[in-house]
Simulated assay, not measured.
Amino acid sequence: MVNAYAAFEQGGVLQPFEYDPGPLGRQQVDIQVEYCGICHSDLSMIKNEWGMTQYPFVPGHEIVGIVAEIGSEVTTLRVGQRVGLGWYSSSCMHCEWCMGGDHHLCLSAEGTIVGRPGGFADQVRADQSWIVPIPESIDSAVAGPLFCAGITVFQPIIQCGVQPTDRVAVIGIGGLGHLALQFLNAWGCEVTALSTQPDKEAEARRLGAHHFVNTRDPAALQAIANSCDYIISTVNVSLEWSIYLNALRPKGRLHLVGVAPDLSLPVFPLLAGQRSISGSPVGSPATITKMLNFVARHGLAPQTEVFPLAQVNEALEKLRSQHPPYRLALKC
């Protein structure tokens, strides 16, 4: 039996929950969970904001643990290996997206917390293809957020072909943005932090920003016009997007990873400057592996506060009401 914490109704507090995972599939793996990050997506699923939550609902998709058991056809992992699991737990492995290396775009991909129990538990199960070994130098206590927040901001670097010579700006210095600053600085880019909170300047520079712009200052925004090759937005609020479009150089790109409620832009600056707009979710297992190796090589890490699993509701409340600056995780 698996011991977990679950919400039994929409928006409910999490309570102890026990379930039988059933027989292990031939290509499935059981992970003994050590740590699990807490994400805003977990809050959204608890409240059924996306209309796809099934109760009892066990959150948790930033999972770090040890392989406890493997199916008879598992060839890529071994019992005792330290691994991680993110937003997806399986994909079909034969569609054009899986075969092309974009497993995260598979139309039948299974979410780790969608229609199945997630990682706020002592054990979680997934297909071998989505379980990724973790390099030794990465601390288990902070590795979990890399499997959601980390890959969310690393995927665009790969997808969009960001170059070390590029001048890149990051909108929002929070759970996603603080990782984007670290990644882009280590990638070799000239990095600008864009934030509504001027008191974050020193922290942003410590994380890797070469420049800081208070976006509440119209003059400061005007000063960066036509200066960025690439802008990544990590925020989930509406902005005056035309200002950021104006900050792009010709052929520049505005890329969204934060779920902003809307996007309204003038078309002419797109056409005249041959600029573009794009977005992305997480990434494939191969890109996750590349990110972990990159993080290990450069000694990067999410700034993470850890709670014991028994204090899961306190941790969720902190995420919900206090807006912690970066990431939270549970020790399971």
Rank of each mutant, 00 (worst) to 15 (best):
F147Q: 00
F147N: 04
C148E: 05
A149R: 03
A149E: 07
A149Q: 05
G150M: 02
G150P: 06
I151A: 01
I151W: 05
T152I: 06
T152V: 07
V153D: 08
V153Y: 07
Q155L: 00
Q155N: 14
Q155M: 13
P156H: 03
P156I: 12
P156M: 10
P156N: 02
P156D: 09
P156G: 01
P156R: 02
I157L: 15
V162K: 04
Q163C: 07
Q163H: 08
Q163G: 01
D166L: 00
D166G: 02
R167S: 14
R167G: 04
R167Q: 15
R167E: 15
V168M: 10
V168C: 13
V168Y: 05
A169K: 03
V170C: 12
I171N: 08
I171K: 02
I171V: 15
I171W: 01
G172Y: 08
G172F: 09
G172K: 03
G172C: 11
G172P: 11
G172L: 13
I173T: 08
I173Q: 01
I173M: 09
G174R: 12
G174P: 11
G174E: 12
G174A: 14
G175R: 03
G175V: 13
G175Y: 03
L176H: 04
G177W: 08
G177L: 13
G177H: 08
H178C: 09
L179T: 05
L179M: 15
L179A: 05
L181C: 13
F183Y: 15
L184I: 14
L184S: 12
N185Y: 10
W187T: 12
G188H: 09
G188D: 13
C189Y: 09
C189R: 06
C189W: 09
E190Q: 15
E190L: 14
V191I: 10
V191D: 13
T192Y: 07
T192F: 08
T192L: 11
A193M: 09
L194Q: 03
S195K: 08
S195G: 10
Q197Y: 00
Q197E: 01
Q197K: 13
P198M: 02
D199N: 11
D199M: 00
K200F: 04
K200A: 09
E201M: 03
A202G: 00
E203R: 12
E203G: 00
A204S: 13
A204H: 08
A204F: 06
A204I: 10
R205I: 14
R205V: 13
R205S: 06
G208S: 07
G208H: 01
A209H: 09
A209F: 04
H211L: 01
H211P: 10
H211T: 06
F212V: 07
V213C: 06
V213G: 04
V213T: 07
T215R: 00
T215E: 05
T215H: 04
T215D: 07
R216G: 14
R216E: 13
D217Q: 04
D217I: 01
P218C: 01
A219H: 07
L221I: 10
